[in-house]
Design a protein around this nucleic acid. Structure first.
Length: 877
DNA sequence: GTACTATTAG
């Protein structure tokens, strides 16, 4: 907590109307709002009698049976501790009891140790004044330290100011109090004040001051001062100097001091190692570690705790394991810092059993241990276990901190626990943590977004005062993952306009998928060029996003050349490129890539097989698909999930194997969900199988009666067969349920701007021109053989009305607009949110021929490349 | 004096 905030908060105790109350605790809640000062020794000493009487009154109210005491020395053992206690002071109470009953001197040391809140300290402060102990320089200095340790720098400073004849020890305490509470400038100024008072700094003074230096200039100035006092080669001071230089990138200076030191203890070695580690010189740190070993010096717990995160960062599992052996050999396993470091180390390598072992074996645990194990489980996809640890931790008496809640928020999101999310939000809100650090704000925004609650996410996002890059990225991703690409783009644009934030790799990895989603080729390409300019490639993350992006925008070649550039250490780039060829109907290429993948040693995962199966399905590769399905579990140990079954049903269905698909569903070990029956229903529509369609739709409406898509499909089937009563009854059913059809829309990118068209919409400014063009096109294509297929019109109306309905389908509007707004020979790229209508598919083939244009349509399912009157995917939409 | 935890992204 900074001075300015703490300074505004009245903290301490009040003697008001016989009530002894504290008005504030560490959380900064101000309960009485009155002005407050720290206990003033003079007034207490002169008014001590009155005070004692008041104290006795209060004590009586604490303990009704106690009446016979007036003066301090006559206090009964069970009264006075009560005065100091506030529920958590049990330890003190017993120790005081002891001192009192045995007529011994108060154990002040114990009292100091028992203070865990500012108001405890204030009461102790009062007690010390009453007992006259405050005159002791030693005790008053301890109070300065105590307040600082409890995070109350303003009381610490006030206590310090009241001390007369301060010695070095007092000044040193004040300096380090400032540093501990983040008041860096105050610390440095305190040193200068101390010099002004002609107090000579000693080797306890400089280390904290060096820690407080915020820039190299200040650091060098302090270095000069140190040289003048002749303390330069003190081990503590020198180690601090080394660390200070490292912090500002002065590695040579640091190493220079280090090598010139006449004597080096463990701390010095650790200081330079940690200095290098924390400032991005992990390799150099490991070199020094070797040097150290060469000199026969053994690592201690600090060295281990410093070096382990570097091993994790450099993905050097082996080095970590060697250190583990070393630790066992030298009995450092039960060290708290070492244990915590290992919990994190193993969690990073997904070896939770090892993390768990360290956690279980720790003789004492601290908050970091709990946070580490919670985040370990959370990061490794076991949010339930993480939450169990969270509860266990509280049972164990630990108060969660901000970082605990970061992990908890993510766990709650992973569990899909909407109610829990509100609790998390409230928990953080009540503690004012949103003001303390952006991290927690970002985590909660992300939690809401992951739970699909974008409104709450946005509201909180807007409230975050100082947003950092991650805040923006989180919001962009949140929108993107909830299918709200245009909102994501809007946030991104706002971000670009905001000063002090520059997009980083995370930003690109969030915005590029949004552009991919709506097929905004030009805007995505602009991102790509910006990325190249900023030199962020070959970042694997962005590379993969771009592969996916180019794939979805129909630029298979670009996707492939990017794929060739990036490292392929995991399955993810492979998955991206396999699915890219899959959606374009190049199933064979996908299969070939899969072979390359396994040859290269990359391990396929469940997503690989989803991409692969859907690739087979898009290309009608039944046998290959069946083979994939078999191999998946047998050779790679991946249990097929619902998505895999869905792809496979789709594969059989598209190939016309309706009965086979139906039998397959009936025999599958998992309970089929809507998407699986939906795939079969889609196939029934393609092959006009009304009977099976009816059976399947009954199953579907049992499981998922709220999904409009299925009603639409079923009514499609009826309409196809000319059974208009069926169409009407389905429509009636859907209406009864209050379901509305998802409006179909298509977009086309003109001049780097996305234009969106809704089916049957006449509101576009160029509407007349568009319809004019469409009428012209329709008559032109009719000449070359286009026959409208009215089965795609679900309304039972006259033929010319049906033609008008087909013409106003969003994809056709977008194509017509594309043709009138772009120069000849330009490729027209359309994106449609639903599946392309079959008649539109047919019409587009003819349009591509009469206009001599290449038209690429990406719908919710796949790609359709139209050129010279043919479509790359045949007549199969 | 030196040490262990940190959110987003396919």
């Amino acid at each position: 907590m900074t001075t300015s905030i703490a300074g505004k908060m009245p903290v301490g105790f009040l003697l008001r109307g016989g009530r002894f109350e504290h008005c504030s605790d560490q959380s900064g809640e101000n309960r009485c709002g009155g002005k407050e000062a720290i206990p003033d020794r003079q007034s207490y000493l002169t008014r001590s009698n009155a005070t004692i009487q008041r104290l006795s009154a209060i004590s009586r109210s604490f303990n009704a049976r106690a009446t016979n005491w007036r003066l301090l020395p006559n206090l009964k053992s069970n009264h006075f501790p009560r005065l100091l206690s506030s529920g958590r002071f049990l330890y003190t109470q017993t120790s005081l009891d002891d001192s009192w009953t045995n007529n011994r001197e108060l154990n002040i040391d114990l009292l100091f140790h028992s203070c865990t809140k500012t108001h405890h300290a204030s009461r102790l402060h009062a007690l010390l004044i009453i007992l006259g102990k405050i005159q002791s320089l030693f005790i008053s200095t301890r109070l300065v330290n105590l307040y600082a340790n409890l995070g109350n720098i303003s009381l610490s400073q006030q206590t310090f100011d009241q001390i007369q004849n301060k010695d070095v020890y007092t000044w040193n305490s004040m300096v380090s109090s400032y540093v501990r509470n983040g008041s860096h400038n105050d610390a440095v100024n305190c040193l200068y004040k101390m010099l002004k008072h002609q107090i000579k700094p000693d080797f306890y003074t400089f280390p904290p001051v060096l820690k407080a230096c915020r820039d190299i200039k200040n650091g060098k100035r302090i270095h000069c001062l140190i040289s003048k006092t002749g303390l330069e080669w003190d081990v503590y001071v020198a180690a601090s100097l080394v660390h200070m230089y490292c912090r500002f990138g002065g590695f040579d200076a640091a190493y220079g001091i280090f090598t010139n030191m006449p004597f080096r203890d463990m701390g010095c070695w650790n200081a330079i190692i940690s200095g290098f580690c924390q400032n991005g010189k992990g390799e150099k740190a490991l070199e020094i570690l070797n040097e150290m070993k060469f000199e026969g010096i053994k690592l201690d717990s600090v060295t281990v705790a410093t070096i382990l995160p570097i091993c994790a960062q450099m993905e050097d599992m082996i080095k970590g394991r060697l250190i583990h052996l070393y630790v066992i050999k030298h009995g450092l396993e039960s060290d708290l810092f070492v244990g915590n470091a290992f919990i994190n180390f193993y969690a990073k390598f997904t070896e939770l059993e090892n993390s768990r072992k360290f956690f279980d074996d720790l003789p004492t645990r601290d908050l970091v241990s709990w946070n580490s194990i919670i985040s370990g489980y959370e990061q490794n996809g076991n949010p339930n276990r993480a939450l169990e640890f969270f509860h266990e931790m509280q049972k164990d008496g630990f108060t969660p901190d901000l970082l605990t809640l970061v992990s908890v928020a993510s766990s709650i999101a992973q569990c899909g626990d909407t109610r829990g999310s509100k609790s998390v939000h409230g928990f953080v809100l009540r503690r004012y943590w949103f003001l303390k650090d952006v991290i927690i704000g970002n985590a909660v925004v992300d939690m809401y977004a992951k739970l699909g609650n974008v409104e709450n996410a946005r509201e909180l996002f807007d409230r975050i005062g100082v947003k950092d890059v991650v805040s923006w990225n989180t919001m962009i991703t949140g929108y993107g993952q909830n299918g709200l690409a245009s909102e994501a783009i809007e946030v991104f644009q706002k971000m670009v306009e905001t000063e002090h934030v520059t997009p980083n790799q995370g930003t690109w990895a969030s915005i590029i998928p949004a552009y991919a989603h709506i097929g905004a080729l030009k805007q995505g390409q602009k991102c790509h060029s910006t990325v190249l300019k900023t030199g962020l490639i070959p970042d694997v993350f962005i590379g993969i996003c771009l592969i996916d992006f180019y794939g979805k925008c129909g630029k298979v070649k670009d996707a492939m050349s990017l794929f060739n550039e990036i490292p392929k250490s995991s399955s993810v780039p492979w998955n991206a490129v396999i699915s890219c060829f899959g959606i374009h109907g190049h199933g064979e290429t996908s299969l070939k890539l899969f072979k390359n993948m396994t040859d290269s040693g990359a391990r396929p995962d469940s997503i690989t097989f989803i991409s692969l199966l859907s690739a087979c399905s898009h290309s009608g590769l039944i046998e290959e698909g069946e083979q994939c399905f078999k191999v998946m579990e047998k050779d790679y140990g991946i249990k097929p999930g619902l998505k895999h079954y869905g792809c496979f049903v789709d594969l059989l269905g598209r190939a016309g194997e309706l009965q086979k698909a139906y039998d397959f569903i009936k025999n599958m070990p998992l309970k089929p969900d809507g998407s699986i029956w939906g795939a079969l229903l889609g196939a029934c529509r393609i092959y006009g199988n009304t009977n099976l369609g009816k059976v399947v739709s009954e199953k579907l409406l049992e499981i998922d009666s709220g999904n409009v898509g299925y009603y639409v499909l079923l009514s499609n089937i009826y309409a196809n067969a000319g059974k208009w009563e069926g169409v009407n009854s389905v429509r009636l059913m859907a209406n009864e349920k209050g379901l509305k059809k998802t409006p179909g829309w298509s977009s086309v990118e003109i001049n780097k701007k996305m234009e969106v068209f809704y089916t049957g919409n006449y509101s576009h400014p160029k509407c007349d021109e568009i319809y004019e063009k469409l009428e012209e096109l329709t008559s032109e294509i009719k000449v070359v053989g286009y026959v409208p297929d009215y089965s795609f019109v679900l309304q039972d109306v006259e033929e010319d009305e049906k033609e008008r309905i087909l013409m106003s389908h969003s994809e056709r509007l977008a194509i017509a607009y594309g043709i009138i707004s772009t120069p000849p020979n330009t490729v027209i790229r359309i994106f449609k949110n639903l599946r392309v209508c079959g008649d539109c598919h047919n019409a587009t083939k003819f349009i591509s021929r009469v206009c001599d244009r290449e038209i690429v349509v990406r719908d919710s399912n796949r790609f359709h490349n139209f050129k010279d009157g043919v479509c790359s995917c045949g007549d199969y939409w």
